[in-house]
Each structure stands twice: as structure tokens, then as C-alpha cells.
Lab assay of single mutants.
Amino acid sequence: MFYPNSPQTSPQLTQIPYGQQYAMMQRQIQQPYHPFATTEPQARLYPYHYQGPIQQEQGGFITQQSTAASPQYVQMRVTPVDQSIMSGYPNQTANGSSSSSFNYNIHPQQQQQQQQQQQQLRHHAMPVGSVPLQDDRYRKQLIVNYLAPDVTSTDLHELFSRFGELDGARIIYDKQTNMSKGYGFVYFCHAEDAKEAVERMSGYEFHGKWLKVGYSTNPLNIVPSNSSPYVHAGSRGAAG
């Protein structure tokens, strides 16, 4: 039997160049792979992502010199942007860049009308829970959420009447099932009393439920100042 490094198959040491006398086997001759043993700084910083320098080929596509990437890492192929796409944008300079302001050559009167329309939209648009300043009635009506099913309009009136005089209180019921929808409205005579009720009743436990109280901004629920107070009856038909 002959071994790869046996004296019968191995040459004389004098015939082997210096430095390879003890590297006779194939696994010894093959050098191990060192990912950080390279002179390129990109490979030292990113050993798993770097795959060699990027070269520009004919046709405008950018390719990489090395083989496919590892399945664990996804390499994105980048193509140059066609400058003709950006030619339609206004205020574009000769080098292809555009300024931040756009001039669509709008007539001054049209621009003024658009600004007025935007101001009107901001004036009428009102986020949930906010209180408008032009109508004091919005500051007097509250919406009470997360009410228990057994709470009546009379219970709601008695709960909030300790903060001040009320114009009314009612629970909203479903017309088909005649069941409470879980929320109601309270109408105060003074805005200061309503503000105190919002601050003190939010998070209050009532009939096993934690109440959420806020201003009601729905104009359909506003009680006119010259109208008669609501009837605080315990029956659902009268309260709904």
C-alpha cells in the first residue's frame, strides 16, 4: 500500500523548493479562506456584503464582478436614472436638479381664491374633541361614552347635575331594538360647569363602566337656548 506522503511516492527534499517541504498533501497545500485577509477597505468593513468592485458596462447597466450573493443577503441591482424623465418638472436647472418651490404660472386672482378656499376649509374642519370658538353652545354640550346598558337618562342627569344647572341629558337608544347604544349627551347651562365635568368625570366608574367624557361637536345635538329642557323620564321611549 502506498500513501500520498510515503517515501516511495514523495520526491527528495532537495528537489522541493524551500517553504513547501512540509506541504505535501493536497489539504495542506490548499490555503484556508480568510474573509478579512484583503487589501480593499470595503471588504474589511463589510465582509458579507462586499463582492468586489463595481464596473460600468456598455448599455448603462451596473453589474458586479463577483458571483451571486448568499441567500441570506439580498443584493440590489441599481440602474442609472434617465434624465429625460425629470425634464417635465418646473424650475429645473441645466444640471438636472430642481428647486423646492414650484411655479405653475397661476393667475394671481386664482391663487388668492385657492388660498381663501383653504382658509375656509381649515375654519370649518374641526378635529374630534375640539371646541370651536365662534359658538358658545359647543362648550356646553358633552358626550358621555361607555355607558352601561342599564343607565337611563334620569341617572345621567343626576350624575352630572352636581356640577351645575343642566339644560338636559339623554341616552341614545336603538330604534329597532330599543336598547341603549352605550353613549349619551349632557347639556349644561354654563360653559364653566361643562369644563369642570369634563375634567372630573373622564375615567369615572359608573355602573361598572369607566366613562369617557368630552365635548360634543355635532351641531345636530345642540340644544337651542330658547327651547324647553328635555324630559328626564326613566322610560326608554321618552328618553330616546
Rank of each mutant, 00 (worst) to 15 (best):
G88A: 08
F36H: 15
H123E: 05
Q55M: 05
L142C: 14
V144F: 01
F188S: 01
Q21F: 02
P229Q: 12
D82E: 10
A69V: 07
S225M: 09
L142P: 00
Q55F: 03
P127G: 11
Q116K: 08
A68H: 11
V223F: 03
S100I: 04
R77S: 05
R139L: 11
Y48D: 13
N103C: 05
Q21C: 04
Q118I: 10
H190K: 12
L166H: 00
I171W: 00
L133V: 12
S66H: 08
Q120L: 09
R200P: 01
T154S: 06
T39H: 06
Y104T: 03
P53L: 08
F36E: 15
F206D: 01
A94H: 08
G182C: 15
Y173G: 02
Y73K: 15
R122V: 04
P71A: 05
A23H: 12
N95A: 12
G184E: 00
G19Q: 11
M24C: 10
T39M: 11
Q58R: 13
T177Q: 06
R139S: 07
Y146G: 01
Y104G: 05
N218A: 02
E40V: 07
Q30C: 05
D155R: 04
Q31V: 04
K212I: 02
S99A: 05
Q117H: 13
T217H: 02
F160Y: 00
Q51G: 11
I54M: 07
D167I: 02
A233V: 04
P35A: 11
V186C: 11
G184P: 00
Q115D: 03
M179R: 10
G52M: 07
P71S: 11
Q64H: 10
Y230D: 03
E192R: 14
V213S: 01
E192A: 09
H34K: 14
Y89F: 06
S87T: 08
D174P: 01
V144N: 01
Q28T: 07
Q65K: 14
G240E: 03
G182M: 03
Q119S: 09
L211M: 12
Q141C: 00
V186S: 01
V78Q: 06
A191M: 14
Q28V: 03
A238W: 12
M25G: 13
G208D: 05
A197K: 00
Q31R: 14
Q42T: 12
A43M: 05
M24A: 10
S180F: 00
D174Y: 14
Y146Q: 01
S70R: 13
Q28W: 04
D174F: 15
I172V: 02
Q58I: 04
R162Q: 06
S161W: 15
I29F: 04
G240F: 09
Q111L: 09
Q55A: 09
S216V: 01
Y187D: 01
Y33L: 11
P47C: 02
P11Q: 12
N103K: 12
K175T: 06
N95K: 13
R137I: 03
Q28P: 09
Q75P: 08
Y18A: 06
G214D: 06
Q31F: 04
Q111E: 08
H34M: 04
I16Q: 14
E205R: 13
P229W: 06
N91M: 08
Q92L: 06
S228L: 09
N5K: 14
Y33H: 10
L211W: 00
M24L: 07
Y215G: 00
P17G: 06
R77P: 05
G59M: 05
Q115F: 13
T9M: 07
G184Q: 00
T152F: 03
S180I: 01
V151I: 05
R139I: 14
P224E: 02
S227G: 05
Q8C: 11
P219R: 00
G19I: 03
S84A: 11
Q55T: 10
Q56C: 08
T177Y: 15
E165D: 12
I106T: 09
E205L: 08
